[in-house]
Nucleic acid binder design. Structure first.
Lengths: 346, 346
DNA sequence: TACAACGATGATAGCGCTAACATGATAGCG
DNA sequence: CGCTATCATGTTAGCGCTATCATCGTTGTA
C-alpha cells in the first residue's frame, strides 16, 4: 500500500477565461453575485439604485454573461429549436422569417437545423438541440421517425409542428394541403380541362406535394377523369419546370393543363412556353402552388394557391410563446388557410 | 446575536431534471464518469470494449448529453455565430447554405442572427453569441459599430467577414463590388449607352450596392458621361423594379439603359416592360447583379453579374475550420471573383 | 533488471451561474 | 404592540460536465 498523505493537494490552475465573471461585477458594485444576477435577469426584483450600480459595473468591465453557465444552473435556455427540411425553398425561409421576428422580439434565439429531407438527420438534430435545454421545438411537418417520437415523448416543452395540419404531437399551425390540391383541381375542371397532368419533383421527400396530388386526383377521379402524374428528379426549380412542360408536350395524349407542385416549376414552364412561342393557356394551361410574387409578375399571370407563410411562422411563434408564458393552452391547432389566385395562365 | 447552530443544514432539493446524467450512464457501464465522457467525446482514448459498454448504456438509458454543462466545463461550444443583415434576400440564404453544409459536416452548429440592416442589432447579437462561447464568428460585411469592434478586439477566436473584400478584422472571403460595378458600366458603354441610370433600393443599408454604384459612376465619368442615381425605398423586389422602370421612362432625359442594383429589381423591370409592350433592349436596356437563375429564364435573358455565393459560404467555412484545427493561417483573404453574364437585355 | 514511455482509467476540483432557502428591515393592520 | 406580509439582499449548495493531475499495469529499451 502506498503511504497516506495528508499534505494539502497542489493548487490546480484552470484555463483562466480572461473574461470578467459575475462575481467580479458584483464586487465592483459592492453587492453579492446573486444580486448582480438579479439586476440583469429580473431587474424588478432589485432596488433601482443597486441595479444602476450593477449596470455601471457591467459596462465598465465589459462583462458578457456566460450563458452556458446560466443555462446549466437554471436548466433552461432561451433557445428555440427550429427544424426545416431545406433552405433552398423560399417557403421555409419565409416561415423562418416569421418565426425569427416574433421569437427574437421576445428575447429568444433560434437554433436552426436543416434536415435536407432526411428523417434520420432530424432525429440527430433534435437530440443535439434537446441537449441545449431548448425552450421549445418548432418543426416543419408531422412526419418523424420512431426514434424521434420516442425522444420527444418524454420531453415536456412545447412542440410546434408547422406547414400542414393533422395529428400533431402538441401544437399545430398549418394548412390543409389535400384540400388545396382539390381546390386547384376543381378550378381546372371548371375551366374545362378534362385531362390534367400533375408534375411534382422528389415527392417522396416533399410529401406535402404528394398530399396535394392526392386531393387533385380525388377530385378528377370523381369527375370521371384520370390523373396522370409526372415526377421529376430535381427539386422545384425553373429548369425542372421547363423539362416538365416538354415532357407533357412530347407525350401529350390530350393533356390540356398541367398542375405543378409549386410555383418554381410552374413559372419555369411558363417562361419556357414563352421562349418556345407557345400560348398559355390556349396551347397548355399552367397552375402552380405557393403564390410567390414572381408568378404574379409574369405574363400571363400564374394561377396558383397562396399560403400565408410568414404569417404561419408568426402565429406559430406566438402560440409557442403563449404556451411558455402560461401553461394555459388556447387552441392546439390553427388552420391558416389558403387562397386561390386566378391568373390568366389557366 | 443569534445562537449558533450546529445542526446539519436542511436537505435542499433542486428541480430534478428527470433526464439521466453522465454519472448514471457511467454507473450502468461500470466506469467512472470521466471515462464515459471520453467514450463519447474522444473515443480513441478509451478501450474499444469499455467504449461499447458505455454506448450501450447511453442507448439503453436514452441519455442526451447536457451541452451547456459541457460547454461550461470546457469553455467552448461547437457553435458558429453567423450574422446576416436579412433573410429576405436570396443572396444571404445561399451563403448561409454554403456555410451550414460545411460546418454541419464538421459537427458545428450555426447560431443564426439577423440584424435587419441595423448595426446596433449586430452588436447585441454578437454580445449574446459571445456569451455562448462560440468557436468562431462569421459576419456578412466589413461594417461594424465601434462598440462591436471593441467587443471583438479582445476575442481570440476566428472572425470571418464575408461578401465583400477590404480591411478585415481577421479572415475575409468575398468579392470586389466596386470592380463589379465598373465591369457592368464598361459593358454598357461598349454597347453604346452613354446615359445610364443606376437604380438601387435602400442603399444606405445595402452599402455593397452603393459600392457597385461607385464603380459604375467612376467608369461612366471617366468616359465623360454622368451617372444619375435613383434610389427606391423598398428593398429589392419585383415591384420596385417595375417602379424603377416607370420612373426612368417618365423622366427619360436620354436614358437608354438601366443598371439595377440587383436581379430582383432588374427582372421586375424586365417583366414589367414585357407587360407594357416595351422592347428590351431597344427601348431600354436592362442590367442586374447577382446572377439569379430567374434572370436566365426570362426573355430576353438578363445581363447580370454572377457571384459564387454558395461557394463563398463553403470557402469561408473551410477557412474557419482550418483555422480552428491548426493555428496556422494560410491566407487571410480570398477573392472569389465574379462573372459577367451577357444576355439579350443589353 | 531497472526505468522510462505509454495506455487506460480514476479522483478531485472546479467552470460561472442561479434555485432554494434565510435573514433583516420596513410596512400594514387590527 | 405584536403579528404577518413584503421587499431587498445574502448564504449555501449545487447544475452536469470536463481539465488536470494521479495511478497502475504493460511494454519497450538499454
Amino acid at each position: 500500500m502506498r503511504p497516506l498523505s495528508n499534505e494539502a493537494p497542489p493548487a490546480r490552475r484552470r484555463r483562466g477565461s480572461e473574461q470578467p465573471t459575475l462575481k467580479e461585477v458584483a464586487d465592483a458594485a459592492g453587492v453579492s453575485p446573486i444580486t448582480a444576477s438579479r439586476a440583469l435577469n429580473a431587474p424588478e426584483r432589485v432596488n433601482a439604485q443597486t441595479r444602476a450600480r450593477v449596470l455601471t459595473a457591467v459596462e465598465r468591465l465589459g462583462y458578457v454573461p456566460n450563458l452556458a453557465a446560466g443555462s446549466l444552473a437554471s436548466a433552461r435556455s432561451r433557445f428555440i429549436a427550429v427544424i426545416v427540411p431545406s433552405l433552398a425553398n423560399t417557403v421555409f425561409i419565409e416561415v423562418i422569417q416569421g418565426l425569427q421576428e416574433t421569437f427574437e422580439a421576445q428575447g429568444y434565439q433560434i437554433l436552426l437545423g436543416n434536415t435536407d429531407y432526411d428523417i434520420d438527420r432530424e432525429y440527430q438534430l433534435i437530440r443535439t438541440f434537446l441537449g441545449w435545454s431548448c425552450s421549445a421545438l418548432v418543426t416543419a411537418g408531422l412526419r418523424h421517425s420512431e426514434a424521434c417520437r420516442t425522444l420527444l415523448a418524454n420531453w415536456d416543452k412545447p412542440i410546434m409542428e408547422v406547414m400542414e395540419l393533422g395529428e400533431a404531437l402538441d401544437l399545430n399551425v398549418g394548412l390543409d394541403h389535400t384540400e388545396a390540391g382539390r381546390c386547384m383541381a376543381r378550378h381546372l375542371l371548371e375551366r374545362g380541362h378534362r385531362r390534367v397532368l400533375f408534375v411534382g419533383a422528389r415527392m417522396s421527400g416533399d410529401y406535402r406535394a404528394a398530399m396535394r396530388y392526392a386531393g387533385h386526383r380525388e377530385v378528377l377521379e370523381q369527375a370521371g377523369c384520370d390523373a396522370p402524374l409526372l415526377e421529376l428528379d430535381p427539386l422545384g426549380s425553373l429548369d425542372a419546370g421547363a423539362e416538365g412542360l416538354e415532357c407533357a408536350l412530347a407525350h401529350r395524349e390530350g393533356i390540356s393543363a398541367i398542375h405543378f407542385a409549386n410555383d418554381d416549376l410552374a413559372t419555369g414552364a411558363l417562361l419556357h412556353a414563352q421562349r418556345r412561342g407557345l400560348s398559355v393557356p390556349d396551347d397548355m394551361a399552367i397552375a402552380g402552388f405557393n403564390g410567390l410574387p414572381l408568378g404574379q409578375h409574369v405574363t400571363p399571370r400564374l394561377t396558383t394557391i397562396r399560403s400565408p407563410r410568414q404569417h404561419m411562422g408568426q402565429l406559430a411563434a406566438e402560440e409557442v410563446i403563449r404556451r411558455l408564458e402560461s401553461k394555459r393552452v388556447l387552441r392546439r391547432q390553427h388552420d391558416v388557410g389558403f387562397e386561390l389566385l386566378i391568373g390568366e395562365s389557366t
